[in-house]
Amino acid sequence: MAESDVKAVMGEFFAAFATADMARIAECLDDDFVWTLPTGESDPHGLVVRGKAAATDYLKQRFFDDKANAPVLSDVKLEYSGDLAIMRFRVQVPASGGRKKVDSAGLEVYRVVNGKIRSKEAYWKQVSWPDAK
């Protein structure tokens, strides 16, 4: 797949994300989409979300049901290599619903196959280390 094709898919995905358009987001995802999140109960992988419907449900529930809780990305830098898109960014999410405020540097690695995003691996810097017990 040409880098220009990867850039086009990622551009559409980011535009859909910016407007919280779940249908457009889903159109960018492969049927076998896998999203590995930076946190969760499944060590060492964190939460793993599989499939378009699960991904859009998670996004809607986690970030977009309450617009005040939507993540704000800044300092975004994108790099492309073959079928990969690598995004470095700062993410800020306000505190709400019993959650702590997030202000962290992040990295996401996307793989695009046949014009659709097949996987997304997300990593955020952990700003505080748990106390050793």
Rank of each mutant, 00 (worst) to 15 (best):
M1I: 08
E3G: 12
S4W: 06
S4Q: 13
D5H: 06
K7G: 01
V9H: 08
M10G: 09
F14S: 13
A16H: 00
F17A: 11
A18G: 14
A20S: 14
D21Q: 00
A23Q: 14
L29R: 01
V34W: 09
W35C: 13
P44A: 06
H45V: 02
G46C: 05
L47D: 08
V48F: 06
V49Q: 00
R50V: 11
R50C: 07
A54N: 15
A55E: 14
L59N: 03
L59E: 01
L59M: 10
Q61C: 03
Q61T: 11
R62Y: 00
R62E: 12
F64K: 10
D66A: 07
D66Q: 05
A68C: 07
N69P: 00
N69R: 11
A70D: 05
A70W: 01
P71D: 04
V72K: 11
Y80T: 05
S81Q: 07
S81W: 06
S81D: 08
D83K: 12
L84N: 13
A85Q: 00
I86N: 04
M87D: 11
R88Y: 13
Q92E: 15
P94I: 07
P94G: 07
K101F: 13
D103H: 05
G106L: 02
L107D: 05
E108G: 08
R111A: 05
N114W: 02
G115T: 08
I117K: 03
I117M: 03
I117L: 04
S119C: 10
S119T: 07
E121W: 08
Y123N: 08
W124S: 06
W124E: 09
V127C: 13
S128I: 10
W129F: 13
P130M: 03
K133H: 12
